[in-house]
Simulated scan of single mutants.
Amino acid sequence: MTIALDLCPSEALASVAAGLRAGSIVPYLGPGVAAAGALATPMTPEALAAFFGTKVALPKRARGNAWASAQHIESFKHRRTVTAYMDEAFGVPVPPTPFHARLAALGLPLIVDSWYTGEMRQALAQHDDWAEVQGITRAGIGEDRWFRFYGPDGGEIDARRAAAAATLLYTPHGSTIPARNFLISDADYVEVLTEIDIQTPIAECVRERRTGRSFLFAGCRFHDQLLRSYARQIMKRSSDTHYAIVDLQQLTRNERRFLDEQNITPIDTPLDTALEQLIAG
């Protein structure tokens, strides 16, 4: 399904809604989808960096950068301290939105949730036949693993059971639920990015389900190179047409270039308006 560039946002969203119903579009959710209901929970990397700054004195190079801030804490305190701060930052559950509920009800083959708060998992808890593959840090675990699989009850399951589920939730950066897995420090990402070009850190069941499908980016920003690198690798070998709900006036030059390079059609409309239309669709 191709969305013509001259379609107005409402027409483009109607086409995307049809693709979601058909299972041919993979939602790639950012923290912006649930930000309005998050209260004091950090819902951007910058807000998370600011939270870290309330806990420790950060060097100038780390201020405003969540990954560098976490690395500073890990280096000068301990990884357990980073995890404790992440638990505190995301300790208050963020409720799923009606859009999360709509996606959960569709029985989609694959959903990507790129923030730590777990709203999509909470929405899926109202349904059966789904599983989660979650990115994990390898710091201190003594295992050559990049991800773990979880069932609806939060218990760890094997790859075969996850691959058999009707819906697969992929949380590439980890999540506060069910097991407090967090990819957050620079060291975490250096490890992953050294191998992500050959796709090792991405589970085979994710790679299979993205094949030939388009992605819809909602509530995401790609103003940081790390965020762009992750999205680019998750999209590999998928369709050559994708969509993003954006405010074109707020995009950085690098974000615009990323959309162009990845053939991502921008849908320039307020996020809440777009999500309401997708829910109705």
Rank of each mutant, 00 (worst) to 15 (best):
L5Q: 10
P9G: 08
S10K: 10
A14V: 10
S24W: 02
I25H: 05
G32T: 02
P45E: 09
E46G: 11
A49D: 05
F52A: 02
V56R: 12
V56W: 06
A57Y: 04
A68G: 10
H72S: 02
E74V: 05
V82T: 01
V92H: 00
V94E: 00
P96K: 09
P98M: 09
R102Q: 15
P109E: 09
V112A: 04
S114T: 14
T117I: 03
E119W: 01
Q122H: 13
Q134W: 04
R148S: 14
F149W: 09
D153T: 14
I157S: 06
A159Q: 14
A166M: 10
T171V: 14
T171R: 14
H173M: 04
T176Y: 00
A179I: 03
F182K: 00
F182E: 00
F182V: 00
L183Q: 02
S185C: 07
A187W: 14
A187Y: 12
L193F: 15
L193Q: 13
L193C: 09
L193I: 09
T194E: 13
T200P: 04
P201D: 02
P201F: 08
I202L: 15
R207D: 06
E208S: 10
R209I: 07
R209G: 06
R210T: 12
F215A: 10
C220Y: 04
H223E: 09
H223L: 03
D224F: 08
Q225K: 14
S229I: 11
Q233W: 05
S238I: 06
V246P: 05
R253K: 12
T265N: 07
I267S: 04
A280E: 13
